[in-house]
């Protein structure tokens, strides 16, 4: 088991994959979350479950500064407080209707969510720029074997002979989330090459995983 020293922080997604006015699903050790960015650009993370009927909020939609559930349109503010129930337009939703929220930070194009009270900032990776995220059925040990390199305390794997880095984190569903990072100065051609190299590394890691399981 790898103990990563990112404290309460999990790197859940890349900033570029969450434009303003959208919501996406993500996972932290506490479970599934709805990660969303308001029209004005403010990031939020809430439990991925509408308190009304249990519908996944990441299937919902963002209007203005609020997240709405797709099922009945109940809207939630960044605080998690329910602010609107379309079936009862005149009703001010009671304070007890709220979705659990989490602390969220964006550093160098990576979005981090904290499970507990965060006393430190999430790590920053100087000189590296995010390229893409991918998930794999391979565990971190298999990724390390395929890359020929060990993960740093912050979860960074720098494969031998490649010009890319992998920021890895284990998810509660047994999959591993990988954020592929490249040097900030890389050209478009180099980035396409890095994306293909990352695909190859994933294939190799999954082969290792399969072999170890057999």
């Amino acid at each position: 088991m790898h103990t990563l020293t990112t404290g309460p922080w999990t790197p859940v997604a890349l900033s570029a994959d969450l434009p303003v006015g959208t919501v996406i699903p993500a996972r932290i050790p506490a479970g599934s979350i709805a990660l969303w960015r308001s029209e004005s650009g403010r990031l939020s993370a809430s439990a991925d479950r509408c308190p009304h009927r249990g519908m996944s909020l990441s299937h919902g939609f963002v209007r203005g500064e609020n997240l709405s559930c797709i099922y009945h349109g109940w809207s939630y503010a960044r605080s998690g407080q329910c602010i609107r129930i379309p079936a009862h337009p005149g009703l001010e939703p009671p304070e007890t209707i709220r979705a659990k929220t989490f602390t969220v930070e964006e550093v160098g194009g990576v979005i981090w969510v904290a499970t507990d009270e965060a006393t430190t900032a999430p790590p920053a990776f100087e000189g590296l720029a995010p390229l893409r995220s991918m998930t794999t059925t391979a565990g971190i040990a298999a990724i390390e074997a395929a890359a020929g390199a060990k993960a740093s305390a912050e979860g960074l794997v720098v494969p031998v002979g490649d010009t890319l880095c992998l920021l890895v984190s284990t998810r509660d569903d047994g999959q591993t989330l990988i954020h592929v990072l490249v040097t900030g100065a890389a050209s478009a051609e180099a980035r396409i090459g890095a994306s293909r190299a990352a695909e190859s590394l994933r294939r190799a890691a999954e082969a290792v995983q399969k072999e170890n399981a057999a």
């Binding site: 006015g21 939609f61 963002v62 209007r63 203005g64 797709i70 349109g73 337009p89 005149g90």
Partner: peptide, 14 residues
């Protein structure tokens, strides 16, 4: 499903 966010939030009168 429809992308409901493409439409502005309507004003609903009770």
């Amino acid at each position: 499903h429809r992308l409901h966010e493409l439409k502005a939030e309507p004003t609903v009168e009770e």
